[in-house]
């Protein structure tokens, strides 16, 4: 199921979609599935499942810590597929966000096959741009999967067009020049980037990096088709003294953000 289903639904309701991220295997595989299920039940329209990787150059300390914990607990690539299968079963379109080497190692075609069989919607690839994605694009197309590439405030108009042409599902606009992590205020670079992206494509544009509460979500929802939240979802799980408390905080945060995208 393509993520476009969720974007159409949100558009029909006159609001932005809420996209929520957690790394798979954090705190452990079942714990991650439980947390992502809570996020779906509390208002996430699309789920991004991260594939923990040893060298995450686009991630700030919060997601690094969670991914590191997953790896220390013995996370395997197959666990991300298990997680996708469980989350996709809730009905929410579910994509995997991954650095390229784990997929390359698993085998691009094999990963695409297994992801499609698990009910996954596609991939977000933070360190793979269309320039180097020939193999992935072919595999995604043959398995009817979304290809979500990133655009950045530094992307030239030519690169925006080039990237947008290679995307399916939506386009991930990084709101700041920097890595993942909650920020106190929203970026003034995101609005212009979304406007420049819209000028070259009709695909939905999601904005990520730095959003952590309903008010920020509402602000971003005014100009973007989706608000993408990652580190802020990881934080309560890292901080909570026990699972129940963590999931409760996660539900409350999701509701706050879901209300935010409806105020935008």
């Amino acid at each position: 199921m393509s993520t476009s289903v969720a974007f159409e639904k949100a558009r029909g309701e006159g609001r932005a979609a809420l996209v929520g991220y957690l790394p798979a295997g954090f705190p452990d595989v079942q714990g991650g599935i439980d947390a992502l299920t809570v996020m779906v039940e509390s208002g996430c329209d699309v789920i991004e499942v991260g594939l923990p990787y040893s060298d995450p150059v686009m991630d700030g300390p919060t997601i690094q810590a969670a991914a590191q914990r997953a790896l220390e607990n013995g996370f395997r690539t197959a666990d991300v597929l298990r997680t996708v299968e469980a989350v996709a079963a809730t009905g929410a379109p579910t994509v995997v966000m991954t650095y390229w080497n784990p997929v390359s190692r698993y085998g691009t075609e094999r990963f695409a096959t297994d992801l499609a069989n698990a009910g996954g919607a596609g991939l977000i690839t933070p360190d793979l741009t269309p320039d180097s994605a020939e193999e992935w694009i072919a595999a995604a197309d043959s398995h009817d999967l979304d290809k979500v590439f990133l655009v950045a405030p530094s992307s030239t108009d030519a690169r925006l067009r080039y990237t947008a042409e290679a995307c399916r599902g939506f386009i991930y606009a990084t709101a700041v020049m920097g890595v993942t992590g909650a920020r106190a205020s929203t970026s003034d670079l995101a609005g212009p980037l979304v406007a420049r992206t819209r000028a070259v494509t009709d695909l939905p544009v999601g904005v990520g990096l730095g959003v952590s509460n309903g008010d920020q979500a509402a602000e971003v929802a005014r100009y973007a088709d989706a608000v993408i939240v990652g580190s802020a979802f990881v934080r309560p799980l890292l901080d909570a003294p026990d699972t129940a408390t963590g999931l409760k905080a996660l539900a409350a945060l999701t509701e706050d953000l879901a209300a935010g995208v409806r105020r935008g």
């Binding site: 320039d131 180097s132 950045a152 405030p153 530094s154």
Partner: peptide, 20 residues
């Protein structure tokens, strides 16, 4: 032109750094 030496090399990097 893509920075490849045969099957090796290239540029697997975040889009944010592509312009740079």
């Amino acid at each position: 032109a893509q920075g490849r030496f045969g099957d090796f090399g290239g540029r697997f990097m975040p889009e944010a750094l592509m312009a740079a």
